[in-house]
Write a protein that binds this DNA or RNA. Structure first.
Lengths: 110, 110
DNA sequence: CGGGATCCGTCTTGATACTG
DNA sequence: CAGTATCAAGACGGATCCCG
């Protein structure tokens, strides 16, 4: 995954930020499943591994899609929350849900 | 990119099909730019390479998102078109455009 | 000549072990 | 339990080759 802008096309730009197999699943967990902690994301059905999760959280934060706030010190622990930018991914994700439910056999709630 | 279903979550399922940096750009070219031939896709701004393009066309066809029809024989040449399944990705892609235009500086038409 | 396959170096992914 | 280090396996990207 690159950080460079490939073009000025907004679709390409969006794919540069979240066009991988994991980022939007983390957003989904925060947006639809009220999950906000590292262990919550690790426990999702898809089984993301720790190195990928840590990397994606870092990237999403850099992109301004999520932000972290400490809820405990020594050792420090964070809650991860969507920013407004992140929350506004919801319409796009709901269209993904609609399309998936309609066209992918076996896709379904929970 | 894997072919396996990671879960029954429709968002994860969609990402399994088109959650990479190139597939949706090919769909975009067909859907919004009236491009239907191999060379058209190669000429897009983002500069996809031939091996990736050939692979993605194959996958999108397997997934029933596009289909190819010959427009010439000896040597055989194809037009690539979206199926109904592929065309119905439009609402999702329009949401991507809206979000990209709103939140990614420098994103813009053409 | 244009579609697309192949080869190869590099970067990314994903599993697992490890650290605080 | 959150996050890092390590390393093998695979995907990517570039160049070139092949075939009609």
């Amino acid at each position: 995954m690159t950080n460079l802008k490939r073009s000025t096309c907004p679709i390409a730009n969006v794919l540069d930020l979240v066009g991988d197999r994991w980022s939007l699943l983390i957003v989904r967990d925060m947006l639809l499943h009220n999950k906000h902690r590292y262990g919550d994301f690790l426990a999702a059905d898809e089984g993301i591994t720790t190195n990928i999760l840590a990397d994606r959280l870092k990237r999403l934060e850099q992109y301004g899609i999520i932000e972290k706030t400490p809820y405990q010190h020594n050792p420090v622990r964070h809650d991860y929350h969507l920013t407004e930018k992140g929350r506004n991914l919801k319409p796009m994700m709901m269209e993904m849900v609609d399309w998936g439910l309609k066209y992918i056999p076996g896709a379904g709630p929970r």
